[in-house]
């Protein structure tokens, strides 16, 4: 395969990967943050302890985290159809990717929020902050660097997962690696794909670290 064929192929695959990963990451970040915040608030000793709610959500998050992605991919086919109208292609892959990332984000957010010093939270409460104000004006802003870092870690994981989604027709870099590199024994394409993934992951990690550091005033 020559460069003038490989290059558009890789470029197209990279765009597909981003198309799968970025919307999934954004939606998962929003829903996962909400879930993580609820975990932090409802845990014993939290601002709004609710043992039953906490134990239920905690179990759901653990199950979500322990399901292998390839299984989730198959399990979610009916839901994927319901939402996107199809179960193959890049757009369809966003559903399982989002669902896999939500518990991951929830866990990271829960940890990040619990790392906000208790004294700061109590100070806000003593100033008369409501629970919602404590979450939106104190907990989330104070945890911002950890949240940015968590988002980066999640994005990198999703790029990895998206390669698996590619295997069942999701497209993207993983799909190219398997179709050309593995099934047609084109080792060169395989290596080029791996390099493209490497560059993508590096770029995401570098950007994420940079934003986290830049916006951290500690």
């Amino acid at each position: 395969m020559t460069w003038d064929v490989l290059w558009p192929l890789l470029w197209q695959a990279t765009l597909e990967t981003l198309w799968m990963v970025l919307p999934s990451a954004l939606i998962a970040q929003i829903l996962g943050t909400a879930l993580g915040a609820v975990l932090t608030l409802t845990r014993p000793g939290g601002l709004r302890p609710q043992a039953v709610v906490y134990r239920g959500l905690d179990a759901v998050v653990n199950v979500g985290r322990s399901l292998p992605f390839i299984i989730l991919l198959v399990l979610l086919i009916p839901l994927t159809r319901l939402i996107t109208g199809t179960s193959i292609g890049s757009t369809a892959a966003t559903v399982p990717l989002t669902m896999a990332a939500i518990p991951f984000v929830a866990r990271l957010v829960d940890g990040a929020l619990r790392d906000v010093p208790g004294g700061v939270v109590e100070a806000a409460r003593a100033m008369g902050a409501s629970t919602a104000q404590t979450v939106f004006k104190v907990l989330l802003p104070e945890a911002r660097p950890a949240l940015v870092h968590g988002f980066t870690v999640m994005l990198v994981s999703l790029i990895g997962y998206s390669a698996m989604a590619g295997a069942i027709g999701g497209g993207g870099l993983g799909d190219v690696a398997i179709r050309y590199g593995y099934q047609r024994f084109e080792t060169g394409v395989m290596i080029a794909t791996v390099l493209a993934l490497l560059v993508l992951v590096q770029a995401v990690q570098w950007l994420g670290d940079r934003i986290a550091t830049r916006t951290d005033h500690r």
Binding site: P117, G119, V120, E122, A123, A124, M127, G128, A129, Q133, K137, V138, P141, E142, R144, P145, T215, D216, H217, R218
Partner: peptide
Amino acid sequence: HFNLLAQRSVLHNVTLPLEL
């Protein structure tokens, strides 16, 4: 231990009670 918000400027730490 002061309990200031590390991610808010000095000015915005002082405005917080009014913001609430």
